[in-house]
């Protein structure tokens, strides 16, 4: 084992593994966005801002009210799920028959609202949970426990969604809607209700992501901007509404960011990821997993 590790640069391997760990959370974010796009055919530009609100919820419950992390987490997930449902009910539902771009821009307005709400309510200070999780040493490599935990929780979350989508009547209906909206009523499915459920589910995933991200990052009103764009790129590259594509693209991007970050700042990892994205558009314009016609 040691001999094998010697061949490779130890830091390179560490970065690769950290990339995989980051990929879990990104995949979770992409899944939520893809779910909503796949079912309702809208893109929530403000998705990352929902995560931001969730991070604040965690911060206040844990730091301010002294709740334990594991008790605060379900509440946060519920809260953001509720926000998701509310977003659909108040903003998307009135626009369902409007041109798609209008729906998208309306969620852009919500992005403004959430960001500035956070600024007004919580100020622009950076805040963190103050939980310092230990660092795991493996050979000469160090892995943050927080990342490992996030990765595992993200996986569990995604498996739960998978089971829900494949095993339950509601999950099956959610998968069916995008294939034929008109006849859903013949199945006894109330499409409006399904949209609300899907929005809540998408919100819940954002809430879960918030619980995980707050372990690693400080929360501030603009924190959504640091992972929102990358989530959109992942979804576009994976093909909007394509769960498997999004999953793979998440790990590809996470590796690029992590390896790019190895050589300089994390921000350059993002830039590299964007450059990669542009190149990929030339090679596979319809997305990573598009079927060739």
């Amino acid at each position: 084992m040691q001999a094998f590790l010697d061949i490779f640069d130890i830091y390179l391997l560490e970065a690769v593994i950290n990339g995989i760990l980051l990929g879990g959370v990104l995949a979770l974010l992409a899944l939520g966005l893809n779910l909503i796009f796949g079912v309702i055919d809208v893109t929530w530009i403000c998705y990352a801002e929902l995560v931001m609100i969730g991070m604040y919820a965690m911060y206040f419950m844990v730091q301010y009210y002294g709740l334990s992390y594991f008790i605060a987490a379900p509440f946060t997930i519920l809260l953001v799920a509720l926000l998701g449902a509310l977003l659909h009910y108040l903003v998307i539902a009135p626009l369902l028959t409007a041109p798609p771009i209008n729906q998208l821009l309306a969620t852009g307005g919500v992005l403004f609202v959430l960001q500035s709400f956070a600024t007004v309510a919580f100020g622009i200070d950076f805040r963190n949970l103050g939980i310092r999780l230990p660092v795991l040493a493996f050979g000469d490599m160090n892995f943050s426990y927080a990342r490992l935990l996030s990765f595992l929780a993200a996986l569990v979350g995604m498996v739960a969604v998978y089971l829900f989508m494949t095993r339950t009547f509601t999950g099956t209906a959610i998968r069916a809607i995008s294939q034929d909206r008109q006849i859903m009523a013949l199945m006894g499915v109330d499409t409006k209700r399904m949209y609300i459920i899907t929005s809540a589910l998408g919100g819940g995933l954002a809430g879960l992501a918030a619980c995980l991200l707050v372990l690693q990052y400080d929360v501030h009103p603009f924190v959504g901007l640091s992972f929102g764009p990358i989530t959109f790129l992942i979804c576009v590259l994976g093909g909007l509404g394509n769960f498997i594509g999004g999953f793979i693209a998440a790990f590809v991007f996470a590796e690029i960011i992590s390896l790019g970050g190895l050589f300089s700042d994390l921000e350059w990892g993002y830039v590299l990821a964007f450059a990669f994205f542009i190149v990929m558009m030339f090679i596979r314009p319809a997305g990573l997993l598009a079927r060739r016609r």
Binding site: F169, T172, R175, A176, Q179, D180, L186, M187
Partner: peptide, 25 residues
């Protein structure tokens, strides 16, 4: 129960899942 014109199955769902949708209510 209405069997629509052109069948209108959910093409990307398995036969099982299509039947499941029929029993949704």
């Amino acid at each position: 129960a209405h069997v629509p014109e052109n069948r209108r199955l959910f093409p990307q769902l398995s036969v099982d899942d299509n039947l499941k949708m029929g029993a949704f209510m």
